[in-house]
């Protein structure tokens, strides 16, 4: 099916409010949207570079997020450092396998899946690959949708810290891993926001194009 693109038709949609504007001639200074005053651009500016920067930073922080404890539990009988995976194991052994799965998916699978998916999207779009474009577009929308759900563990620890506070009997403190983990969630969200899904569909620029 032949699809007309806004670029081919000389149109420029505003990313902020959706207004369809006429693109300025090549070489003319960039315009702002007449309705919402946001700068108009054909593609998100510096999409590859920004997205890679956020993505690499999140990959780096994923290591301390999993290696360091996100939570420290101390009771009369024991002191314990809980990593994310350790917390999942506690839930599983305690018989709440359903919650163990939810936490495992939200805290471990979702961040990993986002990082792998964004890497695939960035590499394939850079190569102007025609491979499974519809599926890749769908993958991007999935990454956007699941983004915030990885914050789950952050909120769980915050509540446990506030509630389990019985001086020497039982106490929960937050661990340094939680900062790294929160940063991973924010950075992967920024990475997926910086990526422009229209790059999946763009043709390589030809020499004879006007």
């Amino acid at each position: 099916m032949k699809v007309r693109t806004a670029t081919a038709m000389g149109l420029l949609p505003c990313e902020a409010c959706g207004l369809v504007c006429r693109a300025p001639p090549p070489g003319a200074p960039a315009l702002c949207c007449p309705r919402c005053e946001a700068p108009l651009h054909r593609r998100k500016p510096d999409s590859y570079r920004r997205s890679w920067a956020f993505l690499l930073a999140s990959m780096l922080l994923y290591i301390p997020a999993n290696a360091l404890p996100i939570m420290q539990t101390s009771t009369l009988v024991y002191d314990e450092n809980n990593t994310i995976l350790g917390g999942v194991r506690v839930l599983w052994v305690g018989g709440s396998w359903d919650l163990a799965i939810i936490v495992f998916v939200a805290s471990i699978c979702v961040p990993l899946l986002k990082m792998v998916a964004l890497t695939v999207l960035l590499l394939s779009a850079r190569r102007h690959s025609k491979w499974r474009q519809v599926e890749r577009a769908r993958l991007y929308r999935l990454v956007e949708f699941v983004g915030q759900w990885s914050m789950l563990d952050v909120f769980v620890v915050a509540l446990l810290v506030a509630l389990v506070n019985f001086q020497s009997v039982a106490e929960v403190r937050a661990g340094p891993g939680l900062i790294a983990f929160g940063a991973v969630v924010v950075l992967t969200m920024l990475a997926s926001m910086s990526f422009d899904p229209r790059l999946i569909w763009d043709e390589p620029e030809r020499q004879d194009s006007p």
Binding site: V3, L11, V20, A137, P197, R198, D202
Partner: peptide
Amino acid sequence: RASSLVVCEHCDAV
């Protein structure tokens, strides 16, 4: 009229 057009935010199709 440009207002009768919608551009897909995800792939630029008109």
